[in-house]
Design a protein around this nucleic acid. Structure first.
Lengths: 200, 200
DNA sequence: TCATGTTTCGAATCTTAAGTCGAAAATTAA
DNA sequence: TTAATTTTCGACTTAAGATTCGAAACATGA
């Protein structure tokens, strides 16, 4: 008989483990994010982690799922405005920007770990993949509508997506400096790089 | 007494091993680029690899050193033209673009493996780090001179570097599609993103 | 308070891949 | 032809880190 409180405590402990995993990732990088380290950080025995998660991968997947869910739910409210695709696009980018600013290491995890790990993290079945796909779809859609309205340069939208994705990634995660990029700086870049068309 | 031919054959075999390593990297990704796989691909026994290289890392470092040397030697001839920084900048980018187009997987190795491996690959002492540093220095210098001449938007050059680095990376290495980016497409992007200022 | 279920953990096991060893095969040169 | 040198390699060792085991500690509710 599992009481309500028990369930909540279980959730809480899972939470702690996830936080510990992110801390270890932040301090040591993904390669050195071992179960031993996470256990130490979470102040649990290693075997206890396996009581809550069936594998290390499951911990990582949980992080990805929660993170991408958050991203999706943050942009979802603004993306339906199809009136001015470019403004909507920039709004959404700015929203993600502030999320990143707020928790740089989480997003570094979300955006870099799947690349670095060929494992099953990337399987389509995972929830986070769905959010990611939806997000890319929305952005690409906005790009295409924006192009139709001449608000963006006329290019193959998939390639433009890659370019903007890379640009965003570069701004936030390249270089040694891990200082957050201010909203102002980011806006400056967005308008400089993709803002010189149509409205604005 | 090591004859001249022997020396050459040794070099040749090292070459084969390096090629095999890159092939395995291309097919399996860096995680699965194991000495066993490389040996199989090179058609040598594993122990033989250690006769030619003292460690797996040494193989990787050799790849990085050769690759970055090539990059540097390819752009070096054009970067001294300080007359029109922006044109010079674009020339250099185009040169690197064609190198990448020519050997996508080598460059994927050069540009992604050091990030994925915290190991000693990244130590400043390695030759490739020197080439990389020099290259970044040159690009950033061109950016600064170009800004002074109003050929580029006025921004913090280090951040602009990150943005362009990310953009370039995104164009070539993001997404599933590993088709090479044509020179024309690339030029289109460069002019669209950083080309709308000053001359041109 | 006891029987049952839940949570914890150190120690043991399993797995993968790097690196080593010692002997054999091949090559060279006198 | 043969001794020395160079090259090759399968089998072994090691190391790190994920995962499992089994028993203990703890909590809960009759």
């Amino acid at each position: 008989m599992i009481s309500d409180r028990q369930t909540k405590e279980r959730e809480f402990r899972k939470e702690q483990i996830i936080k510990a995993a992110l801390t270890v990732f932040k301090n040591n990088g993904i390669e050195k994010a071992t179960m031993d380290e996470i256990a130490k950080e979470a102040d649990f025995g290693k075997a206890t982690l396996y009581y809550y998660f069936s594998s290390k991968e499951e911990i990582f997947i949980e992080i990805l799922n929660r993170g991408w869910k958050m991203i999706w739910e943050s942009i979802e409210p603004v993306i339906h405005d199809k009136d001015k695709p470019k403004d909507t696009f920039i709004d959404a980018l700015n929203i993600i920007g502030s999320l990143v600013r707020n928790n740089q290491s989480l997003f570094e995890f979300l955006f870099t770990v799947p690349q670095k790990m060929p494992s099953s993290l990337n399987e389509d079945a995972h929830a986070w993949k769905g959010f990611q796909r939806r997000m890319y779809g929305v952005f690409q859609g906005l790009l295409e509508e924006g192009m139709a309205k001449k608000e963006f340069p006329q290019m193959r939208s998939d390639i433009l997506m890659r370019a903007i994705g890379g640009l965003f990634h570069g701004l936030f995660f390249l270089g040694n400096e891990r200082k957050p990029m201010s909203r102002q700086t980011m806006e400056e870049f967005i308008t400089t790089f993709i803002g010189n068309y149509g409205t604005t």
